[in-house]
Design a protein around this nucleic acid. Structure first.
Lengths: 564, 564
DNA sequence: AGTCACACGTGAGTC
DNA sequence: TGACTCACGTGTGAC
């Protein structure tokens, strides 16, 4: 872990961010050890995840505490304090829960700030990973962000993957721009795909804390005066472990073979063991994948992703392959180890490529999932639009709640229909007694209103003067329905109307009459007059009621009496 | 990768499944090399993901092809064929796209079966990973399944994490049961939490192909007569690389320091470099995390997750720490390496623990997320209920589409309001010219006729003198039905009678009237008079007709208007 | 803290 | 096969 302290600022920032994303912690502190006479830990570097906070309200508070915390300096002489405990006792991985942290904290800032922390002591100092106590921290997004890094626009050849690429300063990855979360996209509409950019799994808005330049120099390691080799000259990988008894790869094999006879009855243990096995395989490669050195010309296989075909006859493998029983000369052992090394490197590289491929496949959802996504977004937008327009029609004061919109729309609709019914009935009643010339005028007017007109359905609703029921919440209506030029029988019409009336809650039938007569050539006219008592506890919409009846009868005429 | 060939069947199955899940491939084949005179590759083992198919329709077909493919035997002598190319040329990672696979295939089954494959050649044979060309393969689920393994119910101490645990056969993971997806939960309501079980992310139904027992033995490696060490005796980790110039950890440091001065202008390269760095750190541990050997008593720190405090004064670290400038004696170097080793191991273990922790946090949604889930479900259910009730109020024939419901509700509301406006206007106009008229001797005469009878149902059928229709085969009847002392509403009675009349063939309704009035205490009287035209072509039994009507009405009265 | 409401992306079904 | 709809689980903000 000391390497983290040796990196330059940019690399360390990236490294810390990667670590943070990998472990899901929301802050990292690099406490660097300053040798005597200071003999203390100071904040070398760190990252702080502002997004991944337990609660957004206290985010600023926590951030302020962190800023205060990171400016602290901790004496290493004190044995029982954090940070410093892991460093002093050389504990490479010390995880402390809140209760222990409270005990070991030396300042009130720490006590307010600490939740759960992992202290990794090393020679250069101590690395502190801050974990949140709140379990519903955004683990999933962390996972996705962790394992779905930026999309690779090109495939890595082994050379380019290992060597340092020249800078492409203008090639900015759009995904790396941090964006704040937003609630709705409905406001921004015109460019369809532009809004997508805001919704790609956002990288965390990690605020990298810059410290003064003098501190960015690698801190001298008090415990290890031998400096880290930073030369760029290549180091032959064959000599690394040439005189060791077993190569790391063989060790991996042995580690594997040690567990090969074990059955794993439990999925948990099985997975754990398999993870260990994978890690054993991984660890068989002694970090040569990061080597600067260009690979040997004839021995390193080409990139697997592009399927280059190296001339196989001249490879070392070919020679080895043709003499399987060759004695284990040092050269052969070297070649063997080199082969293993290459394989390990290649495995690592393939692992990397796989992950990158997965990342590509997940972040680039093939533009079909992207279409799906934006169409779904459009659909939601449309639906919300409809909701809003519907709510705008509702009486004011209704909650903009979606369910409330629906229910009040329902009630309002019912009330409107009741109003319609009431109004039309009252109309009819008024019309009925307007001329004292008896029923003739009644029918005439009805016929004139609807009969002579070419529409086949006429519904009139008139209110009856309710001297018999003087209470205000009950009123009497006459509903007249005329249906002409249809071979529909009267029974169906009456049944439909009555069934509709049953569905209307606050309307009850007092009396009715119906008749049928021939009119003209072959069309008969059905007329029904119903006297209704309307309970006006809720508002009663005559027009709505009349329209509903009209629809019922029209639907009946349209269906042509096809109901059983 | 040869280790995969050395595992026993159960471990290998788990290993292959893990590999498959990690890489998102949908099949894996282990092609084992059989030494001369056979000199060929045969199918040692493999897994095939039946779920993760590009299209479910062709899944069986692909599975059949795979079954045929895996029974093939491939000669290694041929240079340009797959599988075998990677093995022969010792290519540790050869990825071939479909076009190359088609060229290198030697059988038609392969040509039909191949999509994209990665061939990893090793001494024991070749490992083939089948990747799908279809990019919308379920990467996300693979990811989740990969990094969220079964929940660990207990924390791992360093000893238990390394050693093989005894079996717990009854500890089955409930999540491992596959379940088919379903569309709606609204139909199953009563046990709230029971339905949750059906919605847990399903594990893939990976079918492990069993092969005959004789094949499960590790194939002899023709290229490496020195067998893999399978002894269980511990190997002191300190001696592994004791005589090498640089330890793997130092190599990692060097690798790190080689890239420490490089700026990463591009996030892609940055991430790649950081991943390499992480892997370099990882690879610094020579696979000792899988070691059987119990750790040294005083040197290995305890598990980090439970924050045990080892007595730090007696640790080797303490000694080293107190003498920072100690000369680098061999013992000191050993200690240093041991320290590094321990740190690396601990780092690995912490990585493991982190992943497990993440897995726990994600698979156990803390029962708060569960509450959230079901409350959200309830909310959706309620909202859909409101949608349905709103649609039921809308004129029939509207689409049950959600957006259509909203829009037609809007239109209907608008039309209803227009009707209300129009009707009220007309009403005002009518009320302006209202004469003080009064009448309504509407139903006085009817009360006397049947009101005195004490039976609840009275049906009378009287023939009307048919001077208007003098033909013999049509006669006119008046059917009067009186239903009293029942809270049944008139609508139901009329509906029943009319539906009955519709069922009678030779009777058609000419006209009718109905009314209801109060009689006595709380029983109301419903009276219906229907004028019927009876076609007497067939025999017409007045008494039977009357009795049938009576039964219909009596049945209605008995059912007490319980029909909807 | 806890409840509620909403939007999001995604898998699946339907036409 | 593609366009469309829906339900689901989840993240997140507001009260």
């Amino acid at each position: 872990m000391d390497t983290a302290f040796q990196l330059d600022e940019g690399s360390r920032a990236s490294f810390l961010r990667l670590i943070m994303q990998s472990f899901g912690c929301f802050y990292i502190c690099l406490w660097s050890y300053m040798p005597p006479p200071s003999n203390c830990l100071f904040f070398l570097d760190g990252v702080y995840d502002e997004e991944n906070q337990p609660s957004s309200s206290s985010g600023n508070q926590a951030r302020r505490l962190f800023d205060e915390y990171r400016q602290s300096i901790f004496n290493v002489v004190e044995n029982e304090c954090v940070p410093g405990f892991a460093f002093r006792n050389s504990l490479p991985n010390l995880e402390l829960q809140e209760i222990d942290l409270q005990r070991l904290a030396s300042s009130s800032v720490q006590r307010q700030f600490y939740q759960t922390a992992v202290f990794m002591g090393c020679k250069s100092g101590e690395i502190e990973l801050g974990l949140s106590n709140v379990p519903q921290i955004n683990i999933k997004r962390e996972l996705m962000r962790n394992w779905l890094p930026e999309a690779f626009t090109r495939q890595l050849s082994p050379h380019t993957a290992v060597a340092n690429r020249p800078n492409n300063p203008d090639q900015q990855n759009p995904l790396s721009s941090s964006s704040s979360s937003f609630r709705s996209l409905s406001t921004m509409d015109s460019p369809e795909y532009s809004s997508i950019l805001f919704n790609i799994p956002t990288t965390t808005t990690t605020s990298h804390i810059n410290i003064p330049e003098v501190f960015t120099q690698p801190a001298p390691n008090p415990l290890q005066p031998i400096n880290i080799v930073t030369s760029l000259e290549p180091m032959p990988p064959l000599n690394i472990i040439s005189s060791s008894i077993t190569s790391p790869h063989q060790q991996a094999l042995q580690a594997f073979s040690r567990i090969r006879n074990t059955q794993f009855p439990n999925p948990e243990i099985e997975d754990a063991a398999m993870t260990r096995a994978i890690l054993a395989v991984l660890s068989a490669s002694p970090s040569s994948s990061s080597s600067h050195q260009p690979p040997p010309q004839t021995n390193v296989p080409p990139s697997s992703s592009t399927a280059h075909f190296l001339t196989p006859k001249t490879s070392a493998f070919k020679t080895y392959n043709s003499s399987p029983l060759a004695p284990r000369t040092p050269k052969s052992a070297n070649v063997r180890k080199q082969i293993m090394l290459k394989r390990s490197i290649s495995f690592l590289r393939s692992l990397n490529l796989m992950r990158l491929r997965e990342g590509i496949q997940a972040t680039r959802p093939t533009s079909s999932q992207l279409h799906h996504m934006i169409s779904e977004r459009k659909r939601r937008e449309k639906l919300n639009e409809s909701f809003h327009t519907l709510k705008s029609l509702l009486p004011p004061g209704t909650k903009k709640d979606k369910a409330s919109v629906l229910t009040t729309a329902r009630e309002y609709l019912i009330s409107l229909r009741a109003q319609v019914a009431e109004l039309s009935k009252r109309n009819q009643q008024l019309e009925a007694r307007l001329p004292p010339a008896a029923k003739e005028a009644y029918n005439e007017e009805a016929a004139a209103a609807a009969g002579s007109s070419n529409e086949r359905v006429s519904v009139t609703l008139t209110r009856v003067a309710s001297e018999s029921t003087p209470d205000q919440d009950q009123q009497i209506f006459d509903l007249q329905v005329v249906l002409r030029s249809v071979e529909c029988c009267t029974e169906d019409m009456v049944i439909r109307i009555l069934e509709f009336l049953k569905r209307v809650n606050n309307v009850s039938l007092m009396s009715m009459e119906a008749n049928t007569w021939m009119s003209g050539s072959d069309s008969n006219v059905n007329r029904v007059i119903l006297r209704l008592r309307v309970d006006q506890g809720t508002e009663w919409d005559e027009a709505a009621f009349q329209e509903a009846v009209r629809r019922v009868v029209a639907d009946l005429a349209l269906n042509n009496c096809s109901n059983p």
